[in-house]
Design a protein around this nucleic acid. Structure first.
Lengths: 223, 223
DNA sequence: AGTAACACGTGACGC
DNA sequence: TGCGTCACGTGTTAC
């Protein structure tokens, strides 16, 4: 009992069973002592189980609340309602962040149902050409390039050549294709200083489907 | 009061003030009627404010709980504790997703050190050739293929042709390269029934660097 | 002093 | 019936 606050014991002593107190004061039930006590015992036992179950339920709820409290960075607010308000805020915020990273397609053929069912596997390209090249990592030692453009089979080869030319080392790639378009994310480790503008230029050329370096502009000669 | 359940009123009538009932039964306090009533009124007013404040607090907490319930996709569980457990799960999940979207790295000249610092960006290929093709998704409508082999620029083109031949639609790709080797994971939506063995055969051919279909076995002719 | 927050036991209700 | 959940009013503590 030492882990409980002191007032709990005193409270239990005081208002244990209100109806019992009232009946005792009125004086009824003094006849049939054995039947009365057995009924009283049964009622007390039921009440005991009841209160204990309720105590367990409260413990469970408060346990989850405590867990949520540890999960939130803002630990200052100890208030239960404020905690829940903060949880609501965080969940909305996180859902928004997750939704931004997520994909949502708008194509309207039979693919729609399949895509929505397997949404987690898709990385859906945007309708317009995009190129975003940014440093990532706390010391900006890695470059992440995100690109959307029309898909074509030689694209990956061209991209790899472009990276090789600017001294980029492709350490990871993610590609999603849908409806003839492609979205790819490249993580590039670059050797030379100020490699980012160079890399962006190279990727831009590939994205624009222009000829790149010594790549032949026209189709390859047939044998 | 019409918005409250019926039992509440009955409950209010019964156990409004336990000590008042007890005192009335004992019979004390019949003298000094005016002082008694004024004291009683003050106590009743205080008790009223107290219970109302508590009601407001409950309403606030339950309001946030209801908001959380709307925020969660899994609406089946109406239980309060289960709801909070689900909230805990979701918050952890969302925090993990948000953390994955974030970036953290440092750099050094040493390659190994760089890799270990940027480990999350790498998807490191194994030393030996591997090919694993499995159904994924709850209805196994998607095929996931994981492949490790020696890297070469034409690999992606060959892979895409191989997929096209067996009627596979490449919806997502992840590629990691390191030390001349490549690891790629493909998510393929396949049209025909029993496409998995076919797909595995095709990928195996690509992985083994054998000639594939009408792809010329020797180098392309120079102009 | 009085307000706010909490844990408690209890009656009602659903299964 | 009995068990689990809920809302309620209340005693207690802290500021």
């Amino acid at each position: 009992m030492q882990f409980l606050p002191s007032y709990i014991n005193g409270y239990d002593q005081f208002s244990n069973n209100c109806s019992t107190i009232i009946r005792d004061l009125v004086g009824e039930g003094t006849q049939q002592l054995s039947a009365n006590t057995v009924a009283e015992d049964r009622a007390a036992a039921a009440s005991n189980r009841h209160s204990e179950a309720e105590r367990r339920r409260r413990k469970r709820i408060n346990g989850h609340l405590a867990t949520l409290r540890t999960l939130l960075p803002n630990t200052i607010k100890t208030d239960k309602a404020s905690l829940l308000a903060e949880v609501v805020r965080r969940v909305k915020e996180l859902k928004k962040m997750a939704a931004e990273a997520e994909v949502e397609s708008t194509s309207d053929d039979d693919d729609d149902y399949f895509i929505s069912r397997n949404k987690e596997y898709y990385m859906i390209p945007s309708e317009i050409d995009e190129l975003e090249v940014t440093y990532v990592g706390e010391d900006s030692s890695m470059i992440k390039a995100c690109m959307c453009c029309q898909d074509r089979p030689e694209l990956m080869v061209e991209l790899r050549r472009a990276l090789a030319v600017v001294g980029g080392k492709l350490v990871r790639t993610e590609i999603g294709t849908l409806g003839g378009r492609i979205k790819c994310v490249l993580w590039v480790q670059i050797a030379r200083e100020q490699g980012l503008p160079e890399l962006r230029r190279s990727l831009k050329v590939v994205m624009d489907q222009a000829a790149f370096l010594d790549l032949p502009r026209n189709k390859r000669p047939r044998i």
